[in-house]
Design a binder for these strands. Structure first.
Lengths: 210, 210
DNA sequence: CGGCATCCTCTTTGATACTG
DNA sequence: CAGTATCAAAGAGGATGCCG
């Protein structure tokens, strides 16, 4: 990106990450660190392949991304965020919070990827009783199953995959689930909107907005 | 801006404010709300005038900016942030924090405007003893004089202008002043770097990082 | 002067095709 | 799979013109 040429921290930040697609690439790597090129393309519907390549190179030069050879079984290399890249989390979190109200006006025209829901869960949901025993929820927001677990420090761990026995299971659309877990939607109301909840409703009290 | 077409809060936010110059325009309006077109141009060195006009129109349509007829004495209209626009403050703050380290590598090639320093002061400095009587510092970071005052709620008020009797006076470059007031630089060290401080050094204890 | 609109050139983007 | 290459269209940047 052309520099703004302004001696201002905001302008410098935008010189670095203000280009089109860059912060969305950071989002992808924040959701699942250690991505192949193809994984990134799938998580970034609409990106032209040449731009993805350009951006990754620029981000590597800027010290945001690391391209490393994958361990033996894999025949390719993986992209990771550097610590400096991970420091963009507050930026992503702030932008996401601000952008959330814009999602309402969406008549399903936009594309959606299941795994995207993991990021707001990680950023905005926390465990309100870290001392109590760990809890695991299985979330079904789309095709993929996402696991949400409590962690000792009050934050939650989010991963996709399957587990034998979650403590509860939630099936619904991403926003319902997110609003339910941040306490903005009551279980009763969510149920009338079609969300399914299996398990002890008290478990929900463990979760709240961060 | 072309939409990313992704059902994701971050992507939606970037659809709205991700275009080149947009967040810098927000910065200007955050520093001094109620700007004329010309004020904006001065605060945004390098912006092509047609782009400024384009962006302002788009931002008005997006509900970020309000263009209002100025009260009688002024023969023009003023641009203001809407409440929704002002909600971008956490975004600007996060980006600014992230970008701050990039300012070091600057050999004075970039342009600088005095009033820019007001924003980090407001965002990152706070009053550590709100109950105590108000205090006013006169800051000279460039040509312009900037006043920094404490406010009852722990935040500080920043304005440019002159006052009869500040409680102390600081002359230095913007980063020195900012680092001094956020407690990252000691007065002693700042002085050896050329900063001038007139007044009671204890006053500095009132200020810290937010 | 303040507040744009126009015109032109150059760069970036997006879509698609192609290659090791 | 992981990119490069190509090319048309959109956007950015700069200069200048216009109008109250």
């Amino acid at each position: 990106m052309r520099s703004y040429g302004q001696e201002c921290a905001l302008a410098k930040a935008l010189d670095s990450v203000g280009e089109r697609w860059t912060l969305l690439i950071v989002r992808e790597l924040m959701i699942r660190d250690g991505c192949r090129y193809t994984d990134l393309r799938q998580g970034l519907p609409g990106i032209p392949t040449n731009l993805l390549a350009d951006r990754l190179e620029a981000m590597e030069e800027a010290g945001l991304v690391l391209k490393e050879a994958a361990p033996p079984p894999v025949a390719t290399h993986l992209f990771r965020l550097t610590p400096r890249g991970r420091e963009l989390e507050p930026v992503i979190a702030a932008l996401g919070r601000w952008g959330a109200p814009l999602l309402q006006a969406n008549p399903g025209k936009d594309t959606f990827c299941d795994h995207w829901v993991a990021l707001p869960l990680r950023l905005y949901v926390h465990d309100r009783a870290p001392q109590e025993p760990a809890v695991t929820l299985a979330l079904h927001a789309g095709q993929e199953q996402i696991l949400l677990g409590t962690v000792g420090d009050g934050s939650v761990r989010v991963q996709s995959g399957r587990t034998a026995q979650p403590d509860a299971r939630i099936v619904g659309n991403p926003y319902q689930i997110l609003r339910l877990l941040t306490g903005k939607l009551k279980l009763q109301d969510a149920r009338t909107q079609g969300l399914r909840y299996e398990g002890d409703a008290k478990l929900l009290r463990r979760f709240g907005a961060a």
